[in-house]
Amino acid sequence: MTRNTKPDFYALSWRLPIIIWQALFFLGPIVFMIAMSFFLVKNYRMTEAFEFVNWGRMMTRGYFWDSYWHTIWIASLSTLCGMLIAFPVAYTLAFRASENTRRMAIFLLIIPFFTSYLVRTFSWFVILSESGVLNAMLGWVGLGPYTMLNTTFGTLVGYMTLTLPLVVILQTLAMANIDRSLVEAAHNLGCKPLQTIWRVILPLAKTGMIVAAVFCFILSFGDFVAPFYLGGSQDPTLPILIIDTTKSGQQWPRAAVVAIMMMLTLFAVAFAGIALAYRKRAMS
């Protein structure tokens, strides 16, 4: 059988818009950002150059690595919290709720995306401040007041505001697609509920779960709003470092170095997640 090597212009014409889109708005900016990391700033104006001075400077600064590891740590913590908090909700929606309830719940989970994340973040001030709603309620039972704003806890609350609805949706969809007869079979064969979750549901929903975790990590890793406004910059993450770098002396090339390091990290996490999600499936 010979392969037809003649280009299919009809098929290509359908693919072309997305290729152009990606080239213009994804590949192009990345190439420019990489080039920019070698530029120099003179008198607050970027000048084209090919110098490694920005890379040399940022890579040798202790505060860059402190921010880097801190960002990885807090994004990982956010992922862990998000996955754990979302799981009972997603499990209930997938296995206990009716089709209608599940549909309505997913619709309600989408609604937060209709509103500005910044506005939702600011609304936490009213709830988390020392004179806020939460401390007032704790005060009724003789607890507090606790400092929640400008802490890592505040940052995590912000991350959850950003990621939790999406994580619940992804987990729910992952579990809703599991063949229920397999879960019932596990019960019939004497598997306890927690064992069923661990040995049947999680392996079957693995791909969706990993996708949810990767999304949670990516969104938290790149978020500026939560650590700045709810964490009070006490968690100087890489997005905050980018802002600081551009603010003083307009060092966009150095900010580009930080951004490239962030992208490389996120690519690594995403590829590792994909490899983990599909590894066993490929083997089986």
Partner: peptide
Amino acid sequence: VGGYFDYGGTFNGLKNGE
């Protein structure tokens, strides 16, 4: 130090007593 703020954050921090 309890935080580093922009104009809005400074304003809020002082106003709500944080």
